[in-house]
Design a protein around this nucleic acid. Structure first.
Lengths: 194, 194, 194, 194
DNA sequence: TATGAATGAGGCTTCATTCAT
DNA sequence: GATGAATGAAGCCTCATTCAT
């Protein structure tokens, strides 16, 4: 997947910088990634980073906020049109897994990393978690979700998605994740559905 | 929970160092924690760290390996004596949640942190994941686990445990986790059981 | 003498760093010289050293290898064209003493310091010792060197040159050394010649 | 050769400390040798060093002054009784070389190291150089030394002795040096004698 | 005497950031 | 926009020395 870049993309080395930064932040964490690392991988001078961002931190946060917003918006559009709870659940899992298959690095940065390293700002973006909560709330209203703490159910669903992705990264699972969407969605349905 | 210390603990500032390091590594990550941070919180000089460990990295790895080994051994002893699959599942979840309630920081360091920052060595320790795999394998043999990829089921179970703990840390869930052991274990049973 | 610098010298603080390092290494030894010492004398920040060299050790080795190579090459060109043994001996001594008079610090670093502190690499450079051996071997062939162990004779010749320079540094001898070239060369000739 | 220790030697670990320190100072230089190095090689705790010396520096200086005094006194007693210049020269060279053969490490520490690292105090001890000067002055008086700067001649003689020893250490010469005393003394005689 | 944990200063090196070109 | 040398702060680690035992 191409990283988002509004229109200032032209001529610039920004794309290379963004991709390099994303990869490194994902591989080693933000703190452990140096500006020199980024510059080298992007094939740019160190100074060049500061043409686009005021600091490494800003780069990391912008990368997070911009793409997470984009991803969740897209996921909302994919999932919410479905009427039935089970269909939504499957669309959710499938949306995540397809994204993972397409750009594992970006998915890891946005969803798998816990990001204690990112500032407060980054916590104000709509997250996977919010969509799941919406789905479950609707599901409860429609009688598709069994009795029990909805927040806990949310943890189970998100835990399933995330841990499956992590297992894929560790090589404990193989192949594209999208092939597993149905299985995972079904397991979630068993866990929280009536 | 007291951090483990063989017998060399006497009169030494090692316990203070270990606890300070654990807290900081958990709060900010290994890389973002400075030796000065550790020293200050432990109330010792920076040099004191190096009487006990050769490097910050070694301290982090030793902390991980020693305590994870201890935890998994204890968990094995708690879980495996149970004969039935469902009982094992509940003992597993309960063991994790009790540990979380008792020493959230240590649980976070050992289980919740993904630890890309730890060296290869640290990957050779028996982990939660291995116990879960054993339980599922036995459960399949005894006919208690339904058809489907066992590794995937493992991801679901571990995902549930871990994500519930993370939700607790984020404040999305409240109170002691041990009160939720039954619910979580039941959800897992629904997801993977017959 | 200007320290050698290929062409990257421009606008850089490298020359100042090299001269400061050379002086300090010579005065106090490599180990006893701190990077802060070098930076202060060169009028730069400590970090600046690391733009040009990866470590203090590398700086010391590069300084040694580059300039020793240059000096011995020059000495070869000065000495070897002479046909007669006695003329070569005098050219050798004179070449060394002129170098000493011109840049005592550099001569001291290259020739007088024993440099247990330099790594193996630095031992692979052609040294004064090799030129002396060549001169003596030719002298033996031409019948100008008397019977006796050539290697031992080499030690005598080099010992004379080096110890005279050291006496000059200690103030036991005064004035330019070049005025003593003839006397020293003659003494060497008496010692090893027929 | 046993290191000197007055009478406080008894029971103590001082001998081990002195030998370890001497070896290390000679191998790596005083500055590069750490108190931990010394303690480890001596098989002693670090604190133990301070039972005998107030500082590392004092240990290094004491080692130097005590043994150099002892050595030069002994050399005086060996050399000066000889009446003739040539005999004195040979006794000098032979005394040095025998010492070298017996305890190369100590000889290196006392005579071969330039010791920029030792304080002023250490420069007040009678040194090889002074004995050589005495021999040459007498030789001039007795008409055995030819015309020329006596200090320069001193440099040549000392240069010969020292450089031969250094060549032996570097492996450029082999075997015991005492077998070379006559050759070296003769070369010196040729260089400075009538 | 001896031990070895602890200290405080300082050493080498790295880093995010700036700035002259 | 881009470069890369330079900076100042900080990071990790080592060292000589002290001190309680």
């Amino acid at each position: 997947m191409d990283l988002i870049m509004d229109d200032r993309k032209r001529d610039t080395k920004l794309p290379a910088i963004l991709r390099a930064a994303l990869e490194l932040f994902t591989e080693k964490g933000i703190h452990a990634t140096t500006t020199k690392d980024i510059a080298r991988r992007a094939g740019v001078s160190e100074g060049a980073l500061y043409r686009h961002y005021q600091s490494k931190q800003e780069l990391a946060e912008d990368l997070y906020i911009t793409h997470l917003s984009y991803f969740t918006a897209q996921l909302d559009r994919t999932v919410l049109p479905h009427a039935r709870f089970s269909a939504r659940l499957e669309a959710l899992v499938d949306g995540c897994f397809r994204f993972f298959d397409e750009d594992r690095t970006l998915f890891t940065y946005l969803i798998l990393s816990e990001h204690n390293e990112l500032g407060r700002t980054s916590k104000r973006v709509r997250h996977l978690r919010h969509l799941v909560r919406d789905i479950l709330t609707d599901g409860r209203a429609s009688g598709d979700v069994r009795e029990g703490d909805l927040e806990l159910f949310g943890a189970l669903v998100i835990g399933a998605i995330i841990r499956v992705a992590i297992f894929r990264i560790y090589g404990l699972l193989q192949g594209d994740l999208r092939g597993r969407s149905k299985d995972v969605a079904e397991a979630c349905l068993r866990a929280v559905g009536k």
